[in-house]
Design a protein around this nucleic acid. Structure first.
Lengths: 227, 227
DNA sequence: TCAAAAGTGTTCCATTTACACCCATGT
DNA sequence: ACATGGGTGTAAATGGAACACTTTTGA
């Protein structure tokens, strides 16, 4: 068989989740060019010949939104024949988690604008991006129950109640405060700081910091988190 | 941005696991053409412009080994810049499970030959196929603990002990016969037949059949298997 | 009659769940 | 002083793990 040259193009897309005040949001860009000019889409673009998929997706995300993420996890590859009106385009989707306050969105040359959207009220999306996001949400929901990824969505210092609220939001159900605390404490992945924060009324809360070293050690030992 | 034409090619690869007499095996082909002519490789090939990824992988598998599988699950997409000496080739890997007795391997035009290899003693492999297989094995091991996929690896009728042996093999550790039986029975996914089979010496064993309808129902209800 | 594989229940332990009151602060 | 959110322990129930003997056949 000879080396073929089918007109199949390869893109990467980055589904980036953020969390703020009890809401999960997704980072979208407004398309500057046709097709779907002016519509919202997942940041992403064509893979260059001399870069890996991971490099491509980080580059595109940075170019289109100004956001840098060191770790994006591969989600799924979408390859339906007619998913792009320009021709045959296969897209490798990645997903990542950040806390939006730590990242400023930048107007860029590649996209009209970049903006966070509440997961519950997304605008109409280009291509098959709605489907891609659905897959990403499913994965996020699945993941949070066996990996304490929630921390990537919070600021570096946070009161325990923020973690709890994040989990109730992601799981879509209430969780028992005492049991949740017991479980998290038993993992020793939180360091309690000597700082307190007062959130409006009520007793001030201790601040915690995620102990990444301890977390990586647990991962190595194959210890499984379960909510 | 214009529609680019980078010289990136797209392939699909099929990692197919089989199980026979206490051994997990993987289906490989011997390459007929350069690069890696004469070496063993995972079946796969270039995606055509008018077929989906799933169609492509099923077609390539059929062409190169004679094996038809209706369900192949997407595993991971491998896109390192230098994974193929011919140039930039990105591969979407899929994996599937069959019972080898139900499928005859066919000599084909695309491959020198197709053959099952014991998972423990694989030959030297082309490209980054060793890495791909490692990822597939990891996924298989993970999957078996929360989904009763084992059934796809067995014949349609089988004694309970075969299922048990399969699990001990995949998990790499002994499991308690009574507890295992209790768990499987509690799921009601096995139908006991009015047939018995005598395997050499010893008391003959009842034959079971996997109740696919019941299994799909459980999946829908979100019930999680756990070994 | 012996060797080999199939089949079967109970007890113990660990983990998870359910559940309610006091504490510290702002208004 | 009251409203608001933070913080804590114990008891019951559930599910998982450990464990050994009887049954049926072939040799």
């Amino acid at each position: 068989m000879s080396f073929p040259n089918p007109q199949i193009k390869l893109t990467v897309d980055a589904i980036v989740f953020g969390y703020n005040e009890g809401k999960i949001s997704i980072l979208l860009i407004q398309r500057k060019y046709d097709p779907f000019k002016g519509q919202w889409a997942i940041p992403g673009g064509f893979v260059l010949e001399n870069e890996s998929l991971e490099e491509a997706v980080a580059r595109e995300l940075k170019e289109e939104t100004g956001v840098s993420i060191n770790y994006l996890e591969q989600l799924y590859t979408f390859g339906n024949v007619d998913r792009d009106p320009r021709g045959r385009v296969v897209s490798v989707a990645y997903f990542g988690l950040i806390h939006p306050e730590g990242h400023t969105l930048e107007a860029t040359t590649d996209a009209e604008k970049a903006q966070w959207f509440d997961m519950e009220t997304l605008p109409e999306l280009s291509f098959d991006h709605k489907q891609i996001i659905d897959v990403a949400i499913e994965r996020l929901r699945g993941k949070i129950t066996y990996e304490p990824i929630g921390f990537e969505l919070l600021e570096t210092k946070f009161p325990f109640s923020n973690l709890e609220k994040l989990y109730t939001t992601l799981l879509g159900r209430p969780i028992d405060r005492r049991n949740f605390r017991k479980k998290i404490n038993s993992l020793n992945i939180l360091d309690e700081l000597d700082e307190k924060i007062s959130q409006g009324k009520g007793r001030p809360a201790s601040l915690f910091r995620f102990n990444e070293k301890r977390y990586k050690q647990l991962q190595k030992e194959g210890i499984i988190f379960e909510i």
